[in-house]
Amino acid sequence: MAKRKGLFGRDPAGPLDYLRKWPLLTVMIATFVFLYVPLLTLMAFSFNDSRRNIVWRGFTTEYYGKLFNNTDLMIAFGNSLTIALFSTFFSLILGAMVAILLWRFRFPMKPFYEGTMALPIVIPEICMGVAMLAFFARIGWPNDLVWPISLANITIAHISFTFPFVAVIVRARLAGFNREQEEACRDLGAGDWEVYRDVIIPHMKPGLVAGGLLAFTLSLDDFVITFFTSGPETVTFPVKVYSMVRFSVTPEVNAASTVLIVITVFLTAIAMWLQNKGAEKK
């Protein structure tokens, strides 16, 4: 009897193999084209040897060279990295604390506390942006500080919206902690602090790395909140790109975008990978 072949020349499709039915396959392919074609063309045309940016005229890395010679852009990039580093450091500490607090303790008004802690994640960015603008203006934050102190206000704003994300991730990691490890530790004579130092914090590590990478990319990527807190002397990379984008579509912007895409996708991929690895161990 003849072998039946399905789409892709394999076993015939069962009734729930939706991806092997053309209506769904069409939607799926169209969705991926929709999601990827704009980004891929953007990245591809950053290597296009033409200012008109539309017809392929040959490969060049000229615009990356221009990018590195563009002092404003490089300063903005330096600012972004500095802010991301500092805000990652502090949001890791604060986020880990919140994670331990919510994972470990029962206390009055806990649901209310949790809800408040989630606010920076859920409120519209624009609201947080204008609140930060109003706050720094009202307390009279000086805008003539020396670098890198001048970036402190942006960093503070970033910490405020990244540390709840870190808390969520680290807490998820802690949920997989086996309390018997801690009891064994106490049984062997450890006190409260030793338990944290020797058992709990090591267990948190993959969560901390994942949370740190997430905080870093969130900070590096943020535009809206930074837009309201940055001054003329403290421009970040996305804010600089924004002013370029408003102006026109150019290969330099494509190149700058490509750099940022590669950095963030790379970092997030590592974070995801670490998180999955942590989850598997559990």
Binding site: M1, R4, P12, A13, G14, P15
Partner: peptide, 22 residues
Amino acid sequence: GFEVPSDGSVEIDGQVVDDVPP
């Protein structure tokens, strides 16, 4: 009808049903 044979066929009441959905 939730799986389709890779080879051979299924008959129900004398009718080959391999191309009949569940």
